[in-house]
Design a protein around this nucleic acid. Structure first.
Lengths: 204, 204
DNA sequence: CGTTTCATGTAACGTTCGTTTCATGTCGGA
DNA sequence: TCCGACATGAAACGAACGTTACATGAAACG
């Protein structure tokens, strides 16, 4: 049930979401959505929690795959996972909520619990210690976000991927720490799923 | 009239915009908005055209100011202009429309005529010829967009500005071209793009 | 069996939306 | 003075919104 709602929201977004079309598309009714999730907000909360759980799980699995996460740097791994067709819909949803939260933090802020912040921590933790600081982490996060926006707008995966690889080259070419050469995997602590409680009433 | 509507949209965004609250806030009625602009879409079109006109004019004026545009690189100038309190509202509006256009190009795409594309061209044209290519231009645009998102979300102008300056250092430190007057990285402050003029233009 | 709880459908509630209809002003030119 | 074009207000229209009342069927359980 919640999976179907997630699929619908991945397709249609969260900005102009209304219950009746969603209910009709997934074979239920607005009456039952309100019954199972308490309210529209409860539904969105449940779906966004599901998105976060799936994304974290999928990404943890991707970086744990041998020879993938460590071989080409954390940012490249993260980017490849992001624009993968299986994941890009979830990333688009999270991105959309992040932008909506700029105008309306009271409404959309709660859906972001630990989402955007965890990206920054994740990237910052994967930086080599010599350049692990807030400015670099902010820059890396911005590169990912900006390229994601560009990819979502244009669909040009080749150009955006090349831009990211160029950025990675900029980083490694100016590395001051010895023995860079892509040998700094630092694949530790990525998941940190935080709190996952939040059982509501009414299973679906 | 359109100026007041613009101010309201700068404050409240374009996602959940409705006529009656806007009309009440600027001292008119939904009836008259529909009368003067034909429809809600016509109003948004007029306002977004005004945003684009003001932004382009203001930025052209900023780069034309002697000793500012050329001294510290196009990206730094663009960034300083972007997060200036006088302009950041317009940039937020354009950013918001760009994100909405991902989901609904039919509705919000027309409001982007020449907006995002012109940024890329503007930045690409300001790159030194040796590194003027699509990957670098895409990367620079993404850095601006991503840092703008981060700034709009966190309001931390110092951290985002430092991240941009770090990116500028990455670019200049790996510059292989000796041309274009190898200037210093200009580590000074950025956020002071001249005096505070530019009172509101007339226009209804 | 009776009762209690859950699940679900039908239909309505009160709002708000963009837009339209109708009426009435206002005012410059013939 | 009359007139046609524009401007404005009051109110309503149909649609869609989230939510809720009420009825009903099915199952759980003493």
């Amino acid at each position: 049930m919640i999976g179907k709602a997630l699929d619908y929201m991945v397709m249609h977004g969260v900005a102009g979401l209304t219950l009746r079309p969603l209910a009709g598309a997934i074979g239920t009714s607005a009456r039952l959505l309100a019954y199972h999730f308490g309210s529209k907000d409860g539904l969105i909360t449940a779906v966004m929690d599901e998105v976060r759980a799936r994304a974290q799980g999928s990404f943890a699995e991707a970086v744990a795959r041998p020879g993938k996460g460590a071989a080409k740097g954390a940012m490249r791994t993260f980017w490849a996972w992001t624009i993968h067709p299986e994941n890009v819909g979830h990333m688009r949803l999270l991105f959309e909520v992040q932008v909506l939260a700029i105008r309306d933090p009271a409404t959309y802020g709660p859906y972001l619990r630990g989402t955007s912040g965890s990206w920054l921590e994740l990237i910052e933790a994967s930086l080599p210690p010599s350049r692990r600081n807030r400015a670099v982490a902010t820059l890396c996060t911005a590169v990912i976000d900006g390229l994601l926006l560009e990819y979502l707008s244009s669909g040009d995966g080749r150009r955006t991927t090349r831009a990211l690889e160029h950025f990675g080259r900029l980083m490694t070419d100016t590395a001051r720490d010895g023995g860079s050469s892509g040998r700094k995997p630092a694949t530790g602590r990525i998941g940190t799923p935080g709190r996952t409680g939040r059982r509501e009433r009414g299973r679906a």
